[in-house]
Design a binder for these strands. Sequence first.
DNA 1: GTCTTTTTGTACCATACTGCATAAAACCCT
DNA 2: AGGGTTTTATGCAGTATGGTACAAAAAGAC
Lengths: 206, 206
Amino acid sequence: MVQKDAGAVAKTRGRPRAFNPVKALHAMREVFWHKGYAATSLDDLCAAAGMNRPSLYNAFKEKAEVFKAVLDDYVAEVKPLYEKAFLAPVRYKEALLLVYETAFNIYLVHTKGLGCFMIGAALTDSTRDAGVAAMILEQLRKMDRGFLKLAQAAERRGELRAGVTPEQAAILCASIHNAISVRMRAGETVDDLRCYVKQAINIICA
Amino acid sequence: MVQKDAGAVAKTRGRPRAFNPVKALHAMREVFWHKGYAATSLDDLCAAAGMNRPSLYNAFKEKAEVFKAVLDDYVAEVKPLYEKAFLAPVRYKEALLLVYETAFNIYLVHTKGLGCFMIGAALTDSTRDAGVAAMILEQLRKMDRGFLKLAQAAERRGELRAGVTPEQAAILCASIHNAISVRMRAGETVDDLRCYVKQAINIICA
DNA sequence: GTCTTTTTGTACCATACTGCATAAAACCCT
DNA sequence: AGGGTTTTATGCAGTATGGTACAAAAAGAC
């Protein structure tokens, strides 16, 4: 173990990789995001990642593995963004706006609204890959929990509409979050969706 | 114009079709629903419809046309079911439950929850087919209007929670409807979603 | 310098897919 | 019965796709 820069890659034995693993994952993510899992070919992925098929098979094993790696990468990137919004020291209403604005920012890929990566690219094909379905459900649940914690904190501060439980508020917030993905991918504009979100928020916190 | 049974097909000139157009559309719908647009091949469709490729090319023109025919057929079948629920002479709460129960029934295909056909099979690929995207948006809007009318009627009868406008209520209802599709396809059980729906409804009408 | 390890690039194979050509079949009309 | 019309069935050609074999290349280890 030679001492090196902390950030440096551990010295490997063979020929060094010609491609940048991080950039490759990002490039492949965009292809999947635009075309969906099934419509994306390995050639598409290779072209986007700037590597040839054997390298792709060496780094991953098969298409499904590539996709899971991309999905993991997406989750890892998006998670802290949502967490930041969820933990912002602002009132409930503003926090919710912040969460949805975070979603809008994530869902806009090169000025094109594609919705959540999982819902847009993987949901359809989740019927045939139990692993992917499980990943989607897990992330949905995580968002649900985030919205629930937010609502519970709001309740403690008396910011919830009278007679509304945190559980109910959280379910609505999560539903809106899902609906945004669907509608954005179907072509609804961000401006329209912003109005949509504001209306919805007003029903939760008066 | 020879007088015949009212329901009979108009007498055509050549060899009669061996396949039942209605059954074929339904069978192909299921394939699309399970596998999604992109992952469904023409052979899959032929096998399901019980016809061979030239017949399929004769009846439709290409895969996209088949899909649009299937989508039209789906909409035509589903529309009256939702309308019936929307126009049922019951209280707001029960009407909403009825609408969502209608959705559950539609979305359960052979005991497997696949969500809305459009969201499950077409949404992903709507990025590359403007026609499909337009059809999805149109149907979303129709559901939105249905929920809005329902909420307006509820307001007139004083069944809306105080301080909630019909527009706000309608947006939440539509979001829940979208969320159900997403979650069902991701693997959530109908029982869980029923709880989800009940909780959500309670926030709209106290 | 030589050996070992890992990646790269070219080429390849088997399969699946789209789309069509062609001939036989089934029906109506006269 | 014969001609006209439309559908069916078989089969084929060109291409795309998923996946792999193999030799050359680039690095570290000794």
